[in-house]
């Protein structure tokens, strides 16, 4: 068989990442990131990454563990602001507005760029309250019936409504893992974001629940721009239109998913997707 390559000899060896290859930019970009560097105290987690998220498309961020794809994702809606000692440089532009500008309110930003996390994290409240929380804090509903409607449509879009419609007042934490994750997606949709960031949304789920989520993602891209971090290459191949391959904090290659998985340009990408390491 092949010799197992570790990430170390990949960079110290003959393969050197020298800027990214492929097509990281596109014409109908919802978000454009340029020259992004992220530091955790002294550690640089992201090195000079530039890429676009295409509108109404699913962009998959793949790469071995610790390559910085989650960090990058969390920078997009400024969740990294919460981590002290985390420093972000570079430019993040959504619809022409710089996200890290002084006058950009992270609260508004996070309402427009929603996030679904790796581990389902419903609030320890009722299913209804979980979905209603976002619209409530943003004042999106003026009446109880309007709120009811938002909750119902959000749950429907997340494909959960039929399963929970009789127990909306039961705690969200009592649902199964897959249901919880769909509840979290419903909660994110409820504030009508423009972009949804998903950080390995199916990694804690069984194959059936995963399939449901993947189907859901494919449907959601009709309305939303989606970026998804995943460890499963099959998942990336199934749900995404664009794929970005990260390695040790650098963007190695980005392009159409079909092209990345069938004919990668970079040696590292090929090694990774052919399962030689990762």
């Amino acid at each position: 068989m092949n010799t197992v390559m570790t990430s170390e000899n990949l960079t110290s060896g003959d393969i050197v990442i020298n800027g990214s290859v492929g097509t990281p930019f596109c014409d109908d970009a919802k978000m454009s990131m340029r020259n992004v560097n992220v530091f955790y105290a002294e550690n640089q987690a992201i090195h000079d990454v530039s890429l676009d998220l295409a509108k109404n498309q699913v962009t998959a961020l793949i790469g071995p563990s610790g390559c910085g794809k989650s960090t990058f994702l969390r920078c997009i809606n400024r969740m990294n602001d919460l981590i002290p000692q985390c420093k972000v440089t570079g430019s993040f532009v959504m619809d022409g507005a710089e996200l890290y500008a002084k006058n950009m309110d992270p609260v508004l930003l996070r309402a427009r760029v929603g996030m679904v996390f790796q581990k389902p994290n419903p609030f320890p409240k009722s299913i209804y309250e979980n979905v209603a929380y976002g619209p409530k804090i943003h004042g999106l509903a003026t009446s109880k019936s309007e709120l009811d409607e938002i909750v119902e449509t959000s749950l429907q879009k997340a494909g959960l409504f039929n399963e929970v419609k009789d127990r909306l007042d039961k705690p969200g934490t009592g649902l199964s893992g897959g249901q919880q994750q769909r509840l979290c997606i419903a909660r994110t949709i409820a504030v009508s974001p423009e972009v949804i960031l998903m950080d390995e949304p199916a990694s804690a789920l069984d194959p059936i629940a995963t399939a449901v989520i993947e189907e859901l993602i494919s449907e959601l891209k009709e309305k939303y721009t989606i970026a998804i971090v995943t460890h499963s290459m099959q998942q990336a191949a199934r749900v995404s239109q664009k794929t970005a391959y990260f390695h040790l904090g650098k963007l190695v290659e980005m392009g159409d998913t079909k092209q990345i998985f069938t004919n990668p340009s970079h040696q590292l990408t090929e090694n990774y997707i052919s399962g030689r390491f990762g």
């Binding site: 969740m79 919460l82 930003l109 929603g114 994290n121 419903p122 609030f123 804090i137 909660r187 994110t188």
Partner: peptide, 26 residues
């Protein structure tokens, strides 16, 4: 759990909203 704070912040809740509607009750 920090995941609860992240969940609320990710929805666009401010720090005070996160604290009073989720962290404090828990």
């Amino acid at each position: 759990p920090p995941s609860i704070r992240e969940a609320a912040m990710g929805l666009g809740a401010s720090r005070v909203q996160t604290t009073f509607s989720h962290v404090l009750p828990m």
